[in-house]
Design a protein around this nucleic acid. Structure first.
Lengths: 235, 235
DNA sequence: CTCTGTGAAGTCATTCACAGCG
DNA sequence: CGCTGTGAATGACTTCACAGAG
């Protein structure tokens, strides 16, 4: 175990590894080598080993990694053993969709509240989960009372910086931003921006050039989990 | 103008530059230097010049860039001068939210259809825009008839690969994926994955270490567009 | 003999720094 | 003079390749 600073690319991949391990665990697989893991999920085995190497020695030479053990290790590294409480600012379509997104709970995240400044919306409850819409002015108090430690920005771009400032004032250190805007934050606050516009426009660039090879894609590989028909309702 | 291959990081940034130029244009700014642009939007001036340099010489020495001109140039580079037609697979909460997202039109994207396999949903129309929910089985025909060239995957992870395969069979070359799954695609198909789980889990890692400096964040800088109070409804 | 863990090599991306255009 | 455009320098990330543990 060294004490270099870990790149965000590495932590992103750790999250992906964790997801793979969950799948393997559900399939009853007990152990797996970095190579087999890489092949099954379109990853690179050397990179898996290197990423893990930053945090310790989790493997067994000649064998590979024990799925359950590694799962717990990565869970701990990512801080997912402790629960996180999330609030979303902006009770529009996206905010409401996120508030009811079922995928968060596996990672130990719970959506606690939705904030908005629209009188019409405040006091309502949104979606199946009946998440309460609260006045954005009450944010500082609610953050404290509800022990919220992660905030999601789902407001229009032109108010995003202001909302971020309020969020930082409330003492939040981790923010997921969906507004298409370049935000500036204090150094001790981590803002991750998910920029749909940029993603789409980047796709458009790809479509605009009939270039031969799309280097960014992974090698083609048949998947192993061709399960039977199911509904597509969950998101 | 060279003919190197352009990194996705560069095209992502071009999209950001375009957004900044839109803001400047609306503010009536006629020209701007790379340095001023960088300062106003937390960017790096050398990088702006280098990114643009891959595509041509758009600046005027001693002056900077003409906002309207550069805007059009980047629009063309990203292929945003031609309209794109988008369909979304998965008429769940996220799919419905995306189908009615107003931010796409500025980039010349129009959401044409929603696909699902749930009998209950097929035939309905979703949101203010009344986007029709169609049977996913009709996808190949609809893609042709409606000239759809971009698809969005908003289905649960376990069916995402199968949906992607169908999408590729229908001849689509550009896909935006919201399912938390590692997908494999043909080399001539570009898949961009927006992974909420990974984004959140990476934030969790950041919270788990009380490290002094969050290197990934931009320098703190006061914003210049502190506009007056508005609603936060649009997403 | 298999597979990890890891320096060393290689590749790709960002930033510097300045010649030279307008 | 100010600013772009760009090689050259630096830095970051990935992949190779292998010593050595089990």
């Amino acid at each position: 175990m060294k004490s270099e600073k870990i790149s965000e690319l590495t932590t992103n991949r750790l999250s992906v590894y964790l997801r793979c391990l969950n799948t393997l665990s559900e399939a009853g697989i007990k152990s797996i080598s970095s190579q087999a893991l890489a092949e099954q999920f379109n990853l690179n085995s050397a990179q898996i080993r290197k990423d893990l190497g930053y945090f310790g020695e989790f493997g067994v030479r000649g064998v590979g990694y024990y799925v359950e053990d590694l799962r717990q290790q990565i869970t701990k590294i990512l801080g997912l053993d402790k629960p996180h409480r999330v609030a979303i600012v902006g009770a529009g379509r996206l905010g409401a969709a996120l508030a009811n997104y079922r995928g968060f709970s596996r990672s130990n995240f719970t959506v606690v509240a939705l904030f908005d400044n629209d009188e019409e919306k405040i006091g309502q409850r949104v979606g199946e989960d009946k998440v309460a819409v609260l006045d954005v002015k009450t944010m500082p108090n609610v953050v404290k009372k509800e022990s919220i430690d992660v905030m999601v920005i789902a407001v229009p771009a032109r108010v995003a910086q202001r909302v971020l400032n309020q969020i930082m004032s409330a003492g939040i250190k981790a923010v997921l931003n969906f507004a298409p805007a370049s935000l500036s934050a204090r150094l001790d606050v981590k803002v991750k921006t998910v920029d749909l516009t940029t993603s789409l426009e980047s796709l458009s660039y790809f479509l605009a050039r009939p270039s031969i090879s799309a280097v960014t894609n992974r090698r083609r590989k048949p998947q192993f989990d061709e399960v039977s028909e199911v509904n597509e309702q969950e998101l």
